[in-house]
Nucleic acid binder design. Structure first.
Lengths: 206, 206
DNA sequence: TAGATTGTTAATCGATTAACAATC
DNA sequence: TAGATTGTTAATCGATTAACAATC
C-alpha cells in the first residue's frame, strides 16, 4: 500500500508543526493562525496553509486554527494516536541516553527493549529496561511485533544489525551510527549524526 | 562577511559526501566516481558533480576523484582543517552521552566544557570534563573564545541558555532541546530531535 | 458590517536531472 | 585509440510564494 502522493518534505514538517502547537497548548493557548505559527517557526504562512490543505480543512476563515483540534488531526495523520513500541540496539552512551529519555512517551513512542552484544552489559538494568543479548533480538522483536527501532551501535555493526531488524519485521529505523545503511523498499530510515550538523555550520564559521 | 551565495542545501550535503569518502579511504580505496558515490548515498551522480563544481574542479575526466585529495578539499571548504572547541550545556543523559562521544574528534570538533545548574552535578567528572556551574559559563566561553555549543537542557531553559551563549560570542548552536529557539543574524542553529524523525516515519507505518 | 484569515490557484522561484563536449 | 567520467549548460521538475475569492 502506497500513500497518496504527498511529498516527503511536507510530511517532514508536520511533526514540527505538531511540536509547536502542542507547546502553545501547554501554554494555555486555544487558537492560532498560519501567520503566528509561521512566525514562530520561521516558515511562511502560505506554506503552512498549503501543507495542511493536503490533508483536509482544519481552520476557519477569520479566526484560524483551533489548537486542540489541529493537534488531534496531526496526530491522527501521523499515526500517533497509538504509542509505538521501540527497540534500542546498542547499550553504549547513546543507547543509554535513549533508554532514559523521557521525551518519547508524550510524542507517541516508548522504548521497550534494549540489546547489546557485550556480556558485561547483558542483564544490567538501564532505566526500566534490562539489556538483552543481541542473539535474542530477532525472536523478541517478532514476538512483540515491534515496528520501530533505533540503532546506536558502532558504524561497523550498523548494517548487519539493520539486516536483522528488517528480517524481524521492523519498518522504521532511526540510525545513530554515522554511516549510510541500505534497506529494502518499504522500510524507512532516518539519520541522526551530530557531526554532520556541526560540519554544516562550520562552513559559515570563518 | 557573507559567503558567496551557495545554497544551504548544497552545504548540507558536503558533510555527507565527506563522511562517505572518509569511509572509503578507511577501507583502502583511492579513487571514486560521482556514479559510485551517488549509488552509495542514494543521490544522483549529476547532483554530486554539480554540488562539487560550486567550489572548484576536483576530479579528472575518465578516472573520477582522488579520495585523499577530495577529502582534504572538503575539509578545507567546511573549515575542518582546525579542531573546533565546543561547550555542552546540560549534564543530563544527553549531555553525558555527548561528553563521552568519541566520534567528534576525527570530524573536527571536541567538547572542552560542560555546564549545569544542578549543584549535585557541579564538580563531578564526566569523561574528562568537570561539570561547571552555569553561572560561570559566559566568562569561561569568552575566555576560551568558544564558537560552537550544544544545548542539552530541558526545553524550558533552551532559550535563556541560548541567549547567554550568543551574548558570550557563540556562533553555532546544535540544539537538542525539543523547541525552536531564536538567535540573531549571523548565528547558526541546527536541531536534533529524535521524536520528530520518528514521527515522520510513523506517517508511513500503517 | 468590517476585519481577519482560510484554502486554493497561478506565478515564481529554485533545485535536480539529462545531455554532451572536453579530455584523461 | 576507445572507454570512462568530468564539469557545465539547458531542460525539467518540484516546491514556495503571492494573490484573492470565500467566509467566519
Amino acid at each position: 500500500m502506497t500513500k497518496r502522493d504527498i511529498p516527503g518534505i511536507v510530511i517532514g514538517r508536520l511533526p514540527i508543526y505538531l511540536r509547536a502547537i502542542q507547546r502553545m497548548a501547554q501554554e494555555g493557548q486555544r487558537v492560532t493562525s498560519s501567520k503566528e505559527l509561521g512566525e514562530r517557526l520561521g516558515v511562511s504562512a502560505a506554506q503552512i496553509r498549503k501543507d495542511l490543505s493536503q490533508f483536509g480543512e482544519f481552520g476557519k476563515q477569520g479566526t484560524g486554527y483551533n489548537i486542540k483540534y489541529l493537534s488531534e488531526q496531526l496526530r491522527r495523520i501521523l499515526n500517533l494516536d497509538v504509542v509505538w513500541d521501540m527497540a534500542i540496539v546498542g547499550a553504549g552512551d547513546v543507547g543509554n541516553a535513549l533508554a532514559h529519555y523521557q521525551g518519547f512517551r508524550d510524542r507517541g513512542f516508548q522504548a521497550t527493549m534494549i540489546f547489546d552484544n557485550d556480556s558485561g552489559k547483558i542483564g544490567k538494568k538501564i532505566g526500566n529496561l534490562i539489556v538483552q543479548d543481541i542473539s535474542e533480538m530477532s525472536k523478541a522483536i517478532q514476538q512483540a511485533s515491534i515496528k520501530v527501532a533505533m540503532v546506536a551501535t558502532p558504524a561497523n555493526h550498523a548494517q548487519e544489525v539493520t539486516d536483522q531488524l528488517v528480517e524481524a519485521g521492523v519498518k522504521a529505523i532511526l540510525n545513530y551510527a554515522p554511516i549510510q545503511i541500505s534497506v529494502p523498499e518499504g522500510v524507512r530510515v532516518e539519520y541522526i549524526d551530530p557531526a554532520t550538523h556541526l560540519q554544516k555550520m562550520s562552513y559559515y564559521l570563518k
